[in-house]
Design a protein around this nucleic acid. Sequence first.
DNA 1: TCGTTTTTGTTGAGCGTTCAACTACTTGGG
DNA 2: CCCAAGTAGTTGAACGCTCAACAAAAACGA
Lengths: 150, 150
Amino acid sequence: MTRWLDPDEQHTWRAFLAASRALMDTLDRELQRDAGMPHAYYEILVRLSEAPERRLRMSELADTTGSSRSRLSHAVARLEAAGWVRREDCPTDRRGQLALLTDEGFATLAAAAPGHVEGVRRHLFDPLSPAQVDQLRRISEALTDHLSRP
Amino acid sequence: MTRWLDPDEQHTWRAFLAASRALMDTLDRELQRDAGMPHAYYEILVRLSEAPERRLRMSELADTTGSSRSRLSHAVARLEAAGWVRREDCPTDRRGQLALLTDEGFATLAAAAPGHVEGVRRHLFDPLSPAQVDQLRRISEALTDHLSRP
DNA sequence: TCGTTTTTGTTGAGCGTTCAACTACTTGGG
DNA sequence: CCCAAGTAGTTGAACGCTCAACAAAAACGA
């Protein structure tokens, strides 16, 4: 009783797969080349830079970046080794850890941001009409909505 | 002179990022759990299964799956170790290699397909209206078009 | 024809992610 | 109050991907 994909659906699925993979690969490669870090690490720095006092609980950081706790642990270990992030004990929960963005990390982020934003604009927004950008937002929200249900 | 993202664009970009990551992660995890292989490997098997005589040049396979030659080499090595794929010398080009899907590989694919297709339907098509599916196809094609330019 | 350039595919090292197992702490019910 | 259950975060091994370097064969050009 499999609900197979008809040729149109097949086409759509493969087009989406190819496009999102090509986009992510391109941005990842650009960021690695220009800033020496993968996109996932860039995102961690961004979230920290937006947090009050540039610090966040590990679990909040994991949630907002959509990554597992394990992945975040490894990532923060690397970012700490690079001098871009520091860890601190959480004052209200002795299990907790805070990750905080160092000045050096902020500077690195500030240096990487213009190039990356330019890449996002060139590869994502420029090829789409304003209507399509709007459609993409609604589509993405619908998918996320559905995926984050029980 | 950076063309920064306005709040709406920022929102769209993050929504797309979250959605495509969550979708891919979910499908990848399902496939790993149910078929013991990552989505990239499943795709290789699919492409081979659709090829005449279930065999393709390594470079064609790399192109259609959107992966680097190196990545494909490593992947086929693993698939060969699993008994799902075999390599053969290309008769017309002595540099070339053909990858061919074994019967065992075909059987594994046939067993994995229904569950995976069901996942794609549930997580991608079911949450979207027919109009949105159409929009997604056009958006994806526009992005791929642009990315595969120069 | 001979040498250069391109194309094809592989290899190994290094990196990032996943998964399962684990410690340490907090929470909640009897 | 105490113990069971849940939560926060880390760890190490296995795996897949990237990158640069490489060998072999084909295509090209003078």
